[in-house]
Design a binder for these strands. Structure first.
Length: 502
RNA sequence: GCCCCCAUCGUCUAGCCAGGUUAGGACACAGGCCUUUCAAGCCUGAAACACGGGUUCAAAUCCCGUUGGGGGUACCA
């Protein structure tokens, strides 16, 4: 039978990067095994529901290259009020793939469980439940539902009055399951709460919905975060009660922040959208995430893997047991590696939106500007770690610069008079050079350095500051050539004036 | 509190299952080379088996305990 896995986000916000790593494992496993990767929307929490995050989640997956074989279809997306539903509709034979579209199914299963004695109705008020929990805590007992309604006569609560349906967990014995990563995990039934399966608003809780959907969608492997381990016995009980075949469970370790701190949904954990905005390449992020908690092993020392290589080598059974800390340092390095490996034209295309967002070049990029960019890219390719870095590194090509203050011009240790001389002589040289190509500029400037008896650092540093306004810039001769003679001479003159004014 | 999971350089990890390694690699860090700045590249360095007991000729590897970390404990997922 074909492997079927799923990512089932709840549209209450954008998934944090730890969740995304788990999605990567799911996707890699599906592709490796030639199976299906399913996207299911778990919108059963009506309080925290934010429909607008559905397309954001989908957009993020697409950007990362995590395509899904089955997922919400056109009509259900339209009913959810998603704009551009056509753009995201995939559909599939086991839909609908949005849980709010499957309500009758959950209710039916819940009623079945009540009928066979595996579940019961409960109309305890939230206040009473809270009181019970507080009392238990005060006594130093684990907070659990006291099963008040479990022992009521079967007809004590009418199906028509507001109530929830709870799982009737066996009071004794133990529930166990085999986990791909952890091996056998054992829970005493006495410690398992009578979990609510169907809420009073008619929506299922995660526990009911996940079991029902995974069953009917023929999911074979449940690959999810470690945080689900404690609720897995409830799911196992449900599978047993319903007589359904169990999927393979695989609980992958969580991802923490660099300090080892918790990576909770709202703790500023970065989302795919944020990484994208910060100038990370999707292939770099994918590569990095795949290596967070997994390594090919067998003495393999390669760390840069193409998408195809990751699929080929990924092994779910080799995923680590211990949680992994996210490292921006390593991601940055990897992003730089990927940026350097791009063809200049490809890099140019990816850089374009960042230059445009910064207002440095017009939105439809004119052909002339593109030619300039084509000359700039090779100069900066090995100097940026993020696509966003290009803005600060190249802005002086597109905007006028304020003449640098004297102290910056004199940073190389020259006195004002000497610096003025350097600038004046440089202007003479550059005014008379036959053409303004990189190779034509360099020899006479080097000759000038020798003639003046100064160091290249002193002279070129001064020219750099004068023409770019920065102490750090792309390689000087290429930069001057792209700037062109007129602007270079003007900036040199302006700098000279700065020193004179002094 | 109770339940569950986890433990190799600062970080990601290889090695563990099938005991014998100078415990390997990468990021970051330090020093050097190259060099017009910054990068990139190259070379070198520092850096780990959490602790305590077993088992064994031999333990990072197997067992137990301790400590530490993480997760769960909702009509959230």
């Amino acid at each position: 039978m074909s492997v079927r896995v799923r990512f089932a986000p709840s549209p209450t916000g954008e998934p944090h990067i730890g969740n995304v790593r788990t999605v990567v494992f799911n996707w890699l496993f599906a592709r490796k095994m030639g199976g299906q990767f399913i996207l299911r929307i778990e919108d059963t929490d009506r309080v925290r529901y934010q429909p607008e995050t559905i397309p954001v989640i989908m957009e993020g997956l697409r950007w990362l290259g995590l395509d899904w074989d089955e997922g919400p279809g056109l009509e259900e997306l339209q009913r959810a009020g998603i704009e551009d539903a056509e753009r995201y509709a995939v559909g599939g034979p086991y839909g609908p793939y949005i849980q709010s579209e499957r309500l009758p199914l959950y209710r039916q299963v819940a009623e079945e469980l009540v009928a066979v004695g595996w579940a019961y109705r409960c109309n305890c008020s939230p206040e009473r439940l809270e009181q019970v929990r507080q009392a238990q805590r005060a006594r130093g007992q684990p907070p659990m539902y006291d099963r008040h309604c479990r022992y009521l006569p079967p007809d004590a609560i009418s199906p028509d009055e507001p109530h929830v349906i709870r799982l009737k967990v066996p009071l004794t014995g133990r529930t166990t399951f085999q986990d791909v990563i952890k091996g056998e995990v054992i829970f005493e039934n006495a410690g398992i709460d009578d979990q609510v399966l169907l809420k009073s608003d008619g929506f299922p809780t995660y526990h009911l919905a996940v079991v029902v959907d995974d069953h009917y969608m023929k999911v074979t492997h449940v690959i999810r975060g470690d945080d689900w381990v404690p609720s897995t016995p409830k799911h196992v009980l449900l599978y047993q009660a319903l007589g359904w075949e169990m999927p393979v469970f695989c609980h992958v370790p969580l991802v923490t922040m660099p300090g080892g701190k918790k990576l909770a949904k709202r703790e500023g954990a970065t989302s795919i959208t944020e990484f994208r905005k910060q100038g990370y390449l999707p292939e770099a992020l994918l590569n990095f995430l795949a290596l967070l908690g997994w390594a090919p092993g067998e003495g393999e020392e390669q760390e840069i893997f193409s998408r195809a290589e990751l699929i080929e080598r990924f092994d779910l059974y080799r995923v680590n047991r211990a949680p992994a800390a996210f490292s921006y340092d390593k991601l940055d390095w990897m992003n730089g590696v990927y940026i350097r490996s791009l063809s200049p034209d490809d890099l140019l295309e990816r850089l374009l939106p960042f230059w445009q967002d910064a207002g440095l070049i017009p939105a439809p990029c004119p052909p002339q500007t593109r030619e300039v960019l084509r000359r700039i890219v090779p100069l900066i390719q090995e100097r940026i770690k993020h696509l966003t870095d290009v803005v600060e590194l190249t802005d002086f090509f597109f905007t006028e610069i304020a003449p640098p203050p004297a102290e910056e011009l004199l940073a190389q240790g020259l006195d004002a008079e000497r610096a003025r001389e350097v600038l004046r002589r440089t202007r003479e040289v550059l005014a008379n050079v036959s053409d303004f190509g990189e190779e034509t500029i360099e020899p006479p400037l080097r000759a000038l350095v020798a003639e003046l008896g100064l160091t290249t650092r002193q002279v070129f540093g001064l020219i750099r500051t004068a023409t770019t306004g920065k102490a750090v810039s792309p390689p000087l001769f290429g930069t001057l050539s792209i700037l062109e003679r007129e602007r270079v001479l003007a900036r040199l003159e302006a700098a000279e004036a700065q020193l004179t004014a002094r």
